Amino acid sequence: MKERMFLPTFTLEGINAFSKNTMTEHIGIEFTEIGEDFVKATMPVDSRTVQPFRMLHGGASVVLAESLGSVAATMTVDPNEKYCVGLDINANHIKAVKNGIVEGIARPLHVGKKTQVWEIKITNEEKQLVCVSRITMAVIDKK
């Protein structure tokens, strides 16, 4: 079994509590699983996350992707010494979703001392790919 890459001080309860009173909470994102090398979250497809044609808004998918990538990156650094901020994000929207729940999963492509790159795949309830995103994070010293 691989060693977990995330610091054990981070829990689902803590991450979800930290998200209170933020955009993450406002649009219904809930972190659901922390694995050895991944973080998962869900987001409803409802009035908060659809565009005027009643399909999942691409921007909402990007919010889910950025939330997952940012949390995952932060969970790999000592929060007393470092923090992570987004440098760049892109997204390819592949399939429309009109209702239900989407799930995102963030996995690392590169975890370095100064930068990190995460891939986020978002799927619908049938596990079909809806969006694929990549975020580059800067790792910043607090001192």
Rank of each mutant, 00 (worst) to 15 (best):
M1V: 10
K2Q: 12
E3C: 00
M5V: 14
F6D: 07
L7D: 10
P8D: 13
P8C: 07
P8S: 14
F10V: 03
F10C: 05
T11R: 12
E13N: 15
E13R: 13
E13V: 14
E13Q: 15
G14L: 13
N16C: 10
F18Q: 10
F18V: 00
S19C: 15
N21T: 08
M23H: 09
T24E: 06
T24R: 02
E25S: 09
E25L: 05
E25Q: 13
I29Q: 03
E33G: 06
G35D: 10
E36N: 14
D37G: 11
V39G: 04
M43F: 08
P44D: 08
V45C: 14
V45G: 08
R48W: 04
R48G: 05
V50M: 06
V50N: 03
Q51K: 13
R54M: 15
R54W: 06
L56F: 09
L56Y: 05
L56E: 05
G59C: 10
V62T: 15
V63A: 14
L64F: 10
L64A: 11
L64T: 07
A65V: 03
E66K: 04
G69H: 04
G69N: 04
S70E: 04
V71T: 13
A72E: 05
A72P: 05
A73Q: 01
M75N: 09
M75D: 07
D78N: 14
P79C: 04
E81F: 00
E81G: 00
K82V: 00
Y83K: 09
C84Y: 02
V85I: 14
V85K: 06
G86I: 01
L87E: 09
D88K: 10
I89F: 01
I89A: 05
N90A: 08
N92P: 01
K95Q: 11
A96N: 07
A96R: 06
V97C: 10
V97K: 02
K98H: 11
V102F: 05
V102Q: 02
E103R: 10
I105D: 01
A106D: 00
R107F: 01
R107Y: 00
R107T: 13
H110F: 11
H110Q: 06
V111E: 04
K114I: 01
K114T: 12
T115C: 03
T115E: 02
Q116V: 06
Q116H: 06
V117A: 07
W118F: 10
E119Y: 02
I122L: 03
T123F: 11
N124E: 08
N124V: 07
E126T: 05
L129T: 12
C131F: 01
V132W: 03
R134T: 12
R134Y: 12
R134N: 13
T136I: 11
T136D: 07
T136N: 12
T136H: 10
A138F: 11
V139H: 11
D141H: 12
K143W: 12
